[in-house]
Nucleic acid binder design. Structure first.
Lengths: 196, 196
DNA sequence: GCTTCAATGTAGGCAACGCCAACAATGATG
DNA sequence: CATCATTGTTGGCGTTGCCTACATTGAAGC
């Protein structure tokens, strides 16, 4: 039985996967590089070969979160006929991701990242914002959204989207309030976009 | 010279003050109970008389943050003639607080609080939300805001408010984008509230 | 096929931390 | 003035993040 090779194979990916699981199950405070190493059956210093820092691992985790969220939102965007439907789909996808990955979303938007990694993370977040902006631009072309600088509408829309998800994650809104408030938020967003 | 008494006087408050300063200056990761104690010239176990946990101190810090934000928002609410003006004032006050207390705001809405303290914190956050709702209710009475369940309008408004501040804090929006985007966000919020 | 060498994992150690238990000083209450 | 809960101190334990020195591996060049 070859239970353990000297080289793990893909320790970096294994660390990220396991870290996300620990994050989800035991919270961000319980994340320890040494415990991660123990769980994966490697020595306590092995993780340092792949992440120079604990913070570097957190940054990588956050970045992976943005990529997953990006996919989830891109997938949702195709569906829907009207602008309102498509916007609704976007909101639901974002909120679903938030509820399913609360601690991760918290990590993604947290303030304490390395300045170096921060740049990447900010870019990733802005890519999300760009999706909202593009949706708004489509709406403008089809006449369902008022004229004007697209950022002046897209940015507030993205802002509302994120704020709602953030409240859902931090329990400011209960699960029922999230469910029942979704339609109100979407309606409000549509009004904020509508032509006068 | 009576440089040091055995009893500090108000160690609890001193810990909170100093902790907030450290949070602001060196980030949340640098917050250590032992260092706090050293800074205040007190033994490393003294803080435990006032906060059973490191988390308990963080919770208290967050709660104090909500109280300060509450005051700031309440103070801003008087000013302004029209609904749009008053809403604008609220948004600016929230954003100003966010920019001046980025790490603290992050802490306030973070997910990892004690369930016990969480309840208090959630209540505090909802008190903020109630202010937005009340503003909307006033707007309804004066006819500047559309009819309908006040929560269906107030909650989205508060959501946008928080989302914008959150983006400002996490650098998704640069300082310039925040400044230049403020008016667009306010205009969008007003449209979302306006009667049809 | 051997050597070389960068990549990857290991072993040990250090200082700092959070937390705990046992003890000491203080000041309010009787 | 005695009592005693409150508040602070001392010392210690286990864990952590990080560092340095060393070991194993697999791939590249001869």
């Amino acid at each position: 039985m070859q239970t353990r090779r000297y080289h793990h194979g893909d320790l970096r990916a294994a660390l990220l996967t396991r870290a996300e699981r620990t994050l989800r199950e035991k919270g961000p405070g319980a994340l320890s590089l040494r415990e991660l190493a123990r769980d994966l059956g490697v020595s306590h210093a092995a993780p340092s070969r792949h992440f120079k820092d604990k913070q570097a691992l957190l940054d990588a985790l956050a970045l992976a979160g943005f990529e997953r969220l990006d996919e989830a939102l891109a997938g949702s965007r195709a569906a829907g006929e009207t602008f309102a439907d498509r916007l609704g789909g976007l909101v639901r996808a974002y909120v679903d991701f938030a509820l399913a990955n609360a601690e991760l979303l918290d990590l993604m938007y947290t303030v304490k990242h390395d300045p170096a990694a921060s740049e990447e993370l900010i870019t990733a977040a802005q890519r999300l914002g760009a999706m909202a902006v593009e949706l708004v631009a489509e709406g403008q072309r089809s006449g369902e959204v008022r004229e004007g600088p697209v950022d002046d509408i897209g940015m507030p829309v993205f802002t509302t989207l994120h704020g709602f998800a953030s409240f859902a994650v931090s329990s400011v809104l209960s699960a029922e309030e999230v469910e029942s408030g979704l339609d109100a938020v979407i309606a409000y967003m549509v009004r904020g976009c509508a032509p006068s």
